[in-house]
Design a protein around this nucleic acid. Sequence first.
DNA 1: CGGGCTTACGAATATCGTAACGATA
DNA 2: TATCGTTACGATATTCGTAAGCCCG
Lengths: 322, 322
Amino acid sequence: MKLQQLRYIVEVLNHNLNVSATAENLFTSQPGISKQVRMLEDELGIQIFERSGKHLTKVTPAGKEIIRYSTEILGKVESIKAVANQYTMPDQGTLNIATTHTQARYALPDVIKGFIKRYPKVSLHMHQGTPTQISESVVKGKTDFAIATEALHLYQDLIMLPCYHWNRSVIVPKDHPLANIKHLTIDDIAKHPIVTYIFGFTGRSELDEAFNAAGYKPDVVFTATDADVIKTYVRLGLGVGVIATMAINEDDDFCVLDASHIFKSSLTSIGFRKGSFLRDYMYDFMVRFAPHLTRPLVEKAIQLKYTAEVNKLFEDIELPTR
Amino acid sequence: MKLQQLRYIVEVLNHNLNVSATAENLFTSQPGISKQVRMLEDELGIQIFERSGKHLTKVTPAGKEIIRYSTEILGKVESIKAVANQYTMPDQGTLNIATTHTQARYALPDVIKGFIKRYPKVSLHMHQGTPTQISESVVKGKTDFAIATEALHLYQDLIMLPCYHWNRSVIVPKDHPLANIKHLTIDDIAKHPIVTYIFGFTGRSELDEAFNAAGYKPDVVFTATDADVIKTYVRLGLGVGVIATMAINEDDDFCVLDASHIFKSSLTSIGFRKGSFLRDYMYDFMVRFAPHLTRPLVEKAIQLKYTAEVNKLFEDIELPTR
DNA sequence: CGGGCTTACGAATATCGTAACGATA
DNA sequence: TATCGTTACGATATTCGTAAGCCCG
């Protein structure tokens, strides 16, 4: 059994059982992978993939278990490399952050500015995507951190730590009927078409919840993944914008109405893969992003097995609101 | 990085940093290991072992972490093989049991008799040793199960499940002053020299505890690891024997006095390595040895992280006493 | 000076890529 | 018929064992 063989079966599965695509992605030849997979199967005396003729069609039950173990093995191999790098060049390495537009654009810039100043030799890569893509990217070990507001809790292999709460604001053009309202209510908003985040993004579910609770079916006429696009369409008069308060700039030419009393606040979390070795600078990144995530606290959280236990750990900690 | 390299560094550590001994044990050449170790160090860019001249003297801090990850990796590699074997030949394989003389001689024979009848193709190996040796053997993956009464709880990487309680009896020659006593007390025993298990074996600590609590310093004149030897010396008139009740045969020519009211009962447990894949026949072995250890219960225990949680799981289960 | 690690070197083996083949949808 | 996996084969690397060298206790 070779590590490469394990790598191959994992990657073949990650590429929907398409060996050619896998080969291309790994910069190697397709027959090479094919042969190694077969050799592993021969050695173990069991099929990992089912074949119809010469196409891989599905993963056998045994294959599923084997691939799960293989993934864990490869993760630990990465950890060994990380340990070595930690000792040889503690301030050098790579940091891959998977996150949504909202975080990348509004929450992270200051943190990252400070971080790259302290660690100029760490090369930083931002991967934008949907919350689902973000989570999977971390689970598969392609990125180190997931930062998002939704969907992260669905993955059992992620350790998720709460970072901060945030609220929404309503934005309307200055000549809009709502512009000069004194106390905004959900009834006011419900009278107008709404422009907001696409479903599954940036705390969208809290918005739907509030409308449902008030007995409204919101007239969402336009959705986007990010506040910048939403603002553009609010400017065009498409409707009332509902965006994260932190996405509002000083010099925006809108009327901004706080809506923290209307919608429940959302929680942004940072997550990483269970069992992965964290470099010193990764601990430092976390504490920069969320000051309460001190190294001892994070290390304590790593020890825990269930999300429920992690949540309990943070019960008494007051999270900032932005 | 190769699996073999990881195997080598782990084994070199297991052989007290003696590469030659490691090579002999692994049936390979010493220079081969030496070279692979060095190549791994070169690849990682870090020393795993410290050398004084050409001798390996100690493990570096980084090396310790790397070897810990390597051990986990190798364990999972074994799990992959076990998964494959489980599917190809569910009733065939190996079962290595590490245990003490007491268990091997008195508790296990019936279980094993039934087991080999059901699984004639599973080759069974018994490894006798001290509780410490037993635990280490399982931790290192040399054996599948540890069965013992003491010391198992000290190892964090073992999952330990309680099996049964047992009590002690006092044995004396038929012409001994204690032979015809009606109600045995600790004061009676304390008047005589004692022959019992060696320290660290077979619930020896409960014996010492009872004497201490009663304010006695027991006059232990002879100790052994097993009841057979103890019996021999009791026969010679060396003193009063205190042994596990289950170690008494029908046809022993002793006067046997139950001592369950004098010494706290001891608990025998079965343990296996965290994260190891258990074959079907291993689950079956456990349930044969301790009927309350059903597969669902064991699987639940495997999920838990801390010994305290495991103990809680067994709180409401009544264990047999033998 | 003896046990024990490293270096050197050659034989056996494994890996990987190209090219040709075969099967499925 | 096009896409995709398998087989065949040769060039290149890697591994492993033997033999010789060297260092510490």
